[in-house]
Amino acid sequence: MPVHNVHERLLPMGPEQAGALLDSLSSPTADRLWPHGTWPPMAFDRPLSPGAKGGHGPVRYTVAAYVPGTWIRFTFTGPRGFHGFHEYAVLPVDEARTVLRHTLSMRVRGPARLTWPLAYRWMHDALVEDSLDLAERPARRAAWSPYVRLLRALAARVG
């Protein structure tokens, strides 16, 4: 089953500022893009660079490509059945505005044919919207749906 999922936000900042947000990803002390206060942190075995291995919570991936300040792509290594990538891209509009886009493109197989549409999709969408809210100034937090709140409560009991 193919999955193509895109979230984007027009940010009131130039591409250098948006690129700095991207470059802060997974920094233990300076991450300004990942909503680490409400979601499992994004962490890697080394600084952002091709080949770095890590992920967040049960979602695992490797940095496949990285152009500092512009684009980063992560290739999934887990959970089982996720075959594809997710990425952030900084897309300049003009000197004062930039689109920050998150794209997930994958094929789901095996157990992921159930876990993606029933759980991961909803959690993914909420997490990415929280990330884009964090990037936007002033920050605005999207309201989680009742289903996402239920999934988070169940995940907290399991984890």
Rank of each mutant, 00 (worst) to 15 (best):
Met1Gly: 10
Met1Tyr: 02
Pro2Ile: 10
His4Ser: 15
His7Cys: 14
Arg9Gln: 14
Leu11Lys: 12
Pro15Met: 06
Pro15His: 08
Pro15Trp: 03
Gly19Phe: 08
Leu21Arg: 05
Leu21Ala: 05
Leu21Met: 04
Asp23Lys: 05
Ser24Arg: 06
Thr29Asp: 15
Thr29Met: 04
Leu33Met: 12
Thr38Asn: 01
Pro40Met: 07
Met42Phe: 13
Ala43Pro: 00
Pro50Tyr: 06
Gly51Asp: 13
Gly51Leu: 04
Lys53Ser: 10
Gly54Gln: 10
Gly54Tyr: 08
Arg60Thr: 06
Val63Asp: 01
Val63Phe: 02
Ala65Asn: 05
Tyr66Asp: 02
Val67Ala: 11
Phe74Asp: 03
Phe74Pro: 00
Thr75His: 10
His83Leu: 07
Tyr88Ala: 06
Val90Arg: 07
Pro92Met: 13
Pro92Tyr: 08
Pro92His: 09
Asp94Tyr: 07
Glu95Ser: 15
Ala96Cys: 10
Val99Asn: 09
Arg101Pro: 04
His102Gln: 12
Arg107Asn: 14
Arg109Ile: 02
Gly110Trp: 01
Leu114Ala: 09
Thr115Gly: 06
Trp116Tyr: 15
Trp116His: 14
Trp116Pro: 03
Pro117Leu: 10
Leu118Gly: 03
Tyr120Pro: 01
Arg121Gln: 14
Trp122Met: 07
Met123Val: 15
His124Ala: 07
Glu129Tyr: 02
Leu134Cys: 01
Ala139Gly: 00
Ala139His: 11
Ala139Cys: 13
Arg140Gln: 14
Arg141Trp: 05
Ala143Arg: 13
Trp144Thr: 07
Ser145Gly: 06
Pro146Cys: 11
Tyr147Trp: 15
Tyr147Cys: 08
Leu150Ser: 09
Leu151Ser: 06
Arg157Met: 03
Arg157Tyr: 00
